[in-house]
Amino acid sequence: MGHLAMGLLWALPAWWLLWDEHASALFVVFAVLMAPFPDVDTFLSTAFPNAVHHHGVTHTIVFVVTISVVAGAIVAATLTDRIDDWTAQRFETGRTFVFATVAFAVGGLSHVFADMLSAPDISTPIEPLWPFFEGSLGIDVLYYNNPWWNVGFLSLMIVVHLVVAYSAFDRRGASRTGGA
């Protein structure tokens, strides 16, 4: 829950960018879908116990950006026409690639940042700048298994997104129709 909430926090600026409300919502969805992805290492460590560990390579900026580029390319190749139809804006393949890649990177990097805030207390250290810099960058501000924090933060982010999205829909709708 905490990673989804952090993904929502990091995706919040999408509502103020120069997209229509559908494109902004899609950006938020892509970011939130990517937010838990670095924890794929918990599954990979079961299959490859000697090669993968939690907070290892999947919790690095290099990994998140690489996966975001791959996912952005897949979205651009398969969903550009649908995104173009769903939004009021023209999304050609190149623009879809950049849009999706940035959204996925925002979600994945939010996860790495959240783990930097909370990981050192009960888990292995996180080294987000590996392979360029070896060393933990965790600052242990939060206990990430605290259900009150996770539920509260996620609930707050959902409410904030609903309010901001409603405001964006209302503001953009008024500007398109010439209203106040």
Rank of each mutant, 00 (worst) to 15 (best):
1 M>R: 12
3 H>F: 04
4 L>I: 13
9 L>C: 11
10 W>C: 13
11 A>Y: 01
12 L>P: 00
12 L>F: 03
14 A>L: 08
14 A>N: 09
15 W>V: 06
16 W>T: 12
20 D>Y: 07
22 H>W: 15
23 A>S: 12
25 A>D: 06
29 V>C: 08
30 F>R: 00
36 P>W: 01
36 P>T: 03
38 P>A: 12
38 P>V: 06
39 D>V: 02
42 T>C: 14
43 F>L: 15
43 F>R: 14
45 S>V: 10
51 A>D: 15
54 H>L: 07
54 H>C: 03
59 H>Q: 07
60 T>H: 02
60 T>F: 00
60 T>C: 02
61 I>V: 10
63 F>E: 01
63 F>S: 05
66 T>M: 13
68 S>K: 03
68 S>I: 03
69 V>Q: 04
70 V>N: 09
70 V>A: 12
71 A>R: 03
73 A>G: 13
75 V>E: 04
77 A>N: 14
78 T>I: 05
78 T>M: 04
80 T>P: 02
82 R>N: 13
83 I>H: 04
89 Q>E: 11
90 R>P: 12
93 T>S: 15
95 R>N: 10
97 F>Y: 09
97 F>T: 00
99 F>T: 03
99 F>H: 06
101 T>P: 00
102 V>T: 02
102 V>C: 03
103 A>R: 00
106 V>D: 01
108 G>D: 02
108 G>P: 05
110 S>I: 06
112 V>L: 06
113 F>D: 00
116 M>E: 03
118 S>W: 12
119 A>D: 09
119 A>H: 10
119 A>L: 12
124 T>A: 11
124 T>G: 08
125 P>Q: 08
127 E>Y: 06
127 E>P: 02
128 P>C: 03
130 W>T: 13
132 F>H: 03
134 E>C: 08
135 G>Y: 05
135 G>V: 04
137 L>R: 09
137 L>H: 08
141 V>F: 13
142 L>A: 14
143 Y>N: 14
144 Y>H: 15
145 N>G: 15
149 W>M: 15
152 G>Y: 00
155 S>I: 09
156 L>E: 08
163 V>F: 11
166 Y>V: 11
166 Y>H: 12
167 S>H: 11
167 S>V: 14
168 A>I: 10
168 A>C: 11
169 F>L: 14
169 F>Q: 13
170 D>N: 11
171 R>E: 12
171 R>V: 11
173 G>P: 00
174 A>H: 07
178 G>M: 06
